[in-house]
Design a protein around this nucleic acid. Sequence first.
RNA 1: GCGGAAGUGGCGGAACUGGCAGACGCACAGGAUUUAGGAUCCUGUGGCCGCAAGGCCGUGUGGGUUCGACUCCCACCUUCCGCACCA
Length: 835
Amino acid sequence: MGDYDHKTIEPKWQRLWDQRRLFHAPRDDKRTKYYILPFLPYPSGDLHMGHMRNYTIGDAVARFQRARGLNVFHPIGWDAFGLPAENAAILNKTHPRTWTEQNTARMKEQLRRFGFSYDWEAELSTCEPEYYRWNQWFFLRMLEKGLAYRKKSRVNWCPQCQTVLANEQVVEGCCWRHEETPVEQRELEQWFLKTTHYAEELLTDLDKLSGGWPERIRLMQRNWIGKSEGARVEWAVAKSDKVITTFTTRLDTVYGAVALLLAPEHPLVDSLIAGVPGGAAIARKVEALRRQTRRAQVTGEVEKEGIFTGRFAVNPLSGEQAPLWVSNLVLMEYGTGAVQAVPAHDQRDFEFAKKYRLPIKVVVQPREGKPLNAARLKEAFLGHGRMVDSGPYTGMESEKALQKMTDDLAKKNQAERATLYRIKDWGISRQRYWGTPIPVVYCDACGVVPVPDEQLPVVLPLEIEFTGVGLSPLLNVPEFLNASCPKCGGKARRETDTMDTFVDSSWYFYRYLTPHENAAPFDKEIVRRWFPIDQYIGGAEHAVLHLIYLRFWTKMMRDLGLVEHDIPVARLFNQGMVIKDGAKMSKSRGNVVSTDEMVEKYGADTARLFTLFAAPPEKDMEWTQAGVEGCQRFLQRLYRLVAKHAARVREAPVAVPGNPGPQAAEVNPDERHLLRKAHQTVRRVTTDFEARWHFNTSIAAIMELVNELYLLEPLEEHVSPAVLNDVLRKTVLLTAPYAPHAAEELWEQLGNKQTVVETPWPSFDPELAKEELIEIVIQVNGRVRSRLRVSETLNKDELNERALADARVAALLKGQRIVKIVVVPRKLVNIVLAS
RNA sequence: GCGGAAGUGGCGGAACUGGCAGACGCACAGGAUUUAGGAUCCUGUGGCCGCAAGGCCGUGUGGGUUCGACUCCCACCUUCCGCACCA
């Protein structure tokens, strides 16, 4: 019989699954497809239990759906390019490729030891030329379509990474990897992808994702895209031929504008202050404002301030002159870098006006409450209402005035409706070695020239030296740097910037289906059959980066005619974090639980089981040693039980089509009880998988079933082999998605030749699951005073009668007047007494 | 400041549609087995009062709706997360 020994069981079944290719999903198959995958992991070196939670959840679902008869595709691969590999190269003199390969091999081994049901034949690594070649190919297509372009721009520079960061990688003014390092600003020529081209579509698609993607993620993306509708309005500068364009969503308040504010970086600032008295002093102030980092401005480390330029601008509607100020209140990055200042109706303008003693002019009166008085205003009024002091618009509703003013100005070509998005184009240039080379060359004669498709891939040279200083190390590789121009054949210099690794992760899930296809990024027909992804699983930290880029990429591919759908991912699941000692499990916090140690000491099954049992998967869970031991104890308990009885029951007849298994009529009361519990458990676990993924309650239900079995020990005295066989088989099959190795071992002991993986999910009989007698609670004034065990067919009147006849209830009713009796069939009787 | 999620025993959590609060697990206590310990099996375990039967209190706080509220409504407190001059 022996004891539960995970060390022999787990490798045994892993080998067998592997040999028999049980997790390979035939791309062409009549069964319904189910495409489930975890986020692409970065090979950072070592997996800990925090990472494993993601894979454990996905694997349980994959195994369940496979048992349900679906053709499950469950791939994994490696996000193999990126900065850490290069930083490691600088520190340890290992080549990024070597470092990456070592880490990948190590993590792959760790995943294998957990027995996840991946289709390893689909494995891919983004640093392989056969993969990144297609990044380059896509880039060229986008270049042709005008979706990729180059511009000089002020970029975020992290002095730690020595590289440019995308806006998304800047967290509160600091680097997302180095939270203590403030980001600096630099001017560089950069490659951009036009994500803004799809801003509107990316926004409206969020509605279609309702139900499939978590509300939280959709909201974050909506804020990120940040649509706002308004108008661009032209203000002439007095005594000048210059015109300043503002953007506003509240043109209705324009009569209340007491100033026009310009961002310090606004291109007209220098020429406007050039000839003005005191211009030199103003210029010095502007210079000081420009030196402030955006971080300082946003976090309020520096005060909101400004300076009057000595110039005036003409209000396009009132004709009044408004003083022109330069202020760090205004951002050059958003809108036009110029805004109307309306203190009465904008809180920021209100505070600015108070500070500089600018007048305050109310032009919209609220519909309810006291009318506003400019002199006594404590804060800006942001709502809509009735227009006052606004020339011909006075008396109108402000919403109407907004439209009318825009139309009126538009007729004079002084305004146009405009929609602005907060989302920016995606800067993909990285001054780094370990990434996809951007396939263009710079020719002295022809300028920027794309590398022709036939010359792809532009291969990253492997012979390279890392000094850790300066820009890209590729600048020191003449064989790479020096190219000939594809157009004129003359001397050209190759682009040394590489692509942001978010490019790699934007489309890898298409490549999984045909990872070695070499005529195209993927097989269109196979993709058509397998998309969208049925279930994507990963952490919420990628809510606005990866998960917007991948939607962008699909839009772009749709416009290239490569795919027909708009949304690549039908359902998204965000698992919670793993907490240890009060903090998120992470290497930097030093509170990681090693997966190797877990497998060694408790086994993968125990680790997996605990991961799912400790909390529902979307919530944070706390890792505790005692909890892990409890789960191991359960597996041992199950193992001992099955092992003890296997020999006796395995020859008994088995429920198959034609023989539905033991029925109610043929069994004794103990057996009836056990069968009922078993069928109830199958129902509970099945519905938990289908509806809400609360594996903690599923596992609790299986534990209850096992407890019932123990209470009937010695089982041979109470339960026939046929019934016991049926119940044990169900128990093992239900356990399999959570603890697949132990399940296989026990399944084999029960005399099965097929693996669990090849065995259909157990079904349940609703009739057998039904309780014969149900418990009805009798309440008096809402307090439980007694209970009845009755047949569930009893109707209201019968229940009423039985409740009043109850001895304990009758005693309480003596001398009391009954006001009302509430009867809820199958639940309770509540007798309400006069007070 | 704005938006979101969440607050239940000593701990992790359960209660799915307004109907028995605390499933399951941990921890703890008692018993069986054992030379002993460990392991295993069984029993108990929200608080207070009581020998017991039983009673009272109890889901962050205060109010409300209801025969009945962890669940719905209002106000507030705490924690976590996201956004944060977006004109």
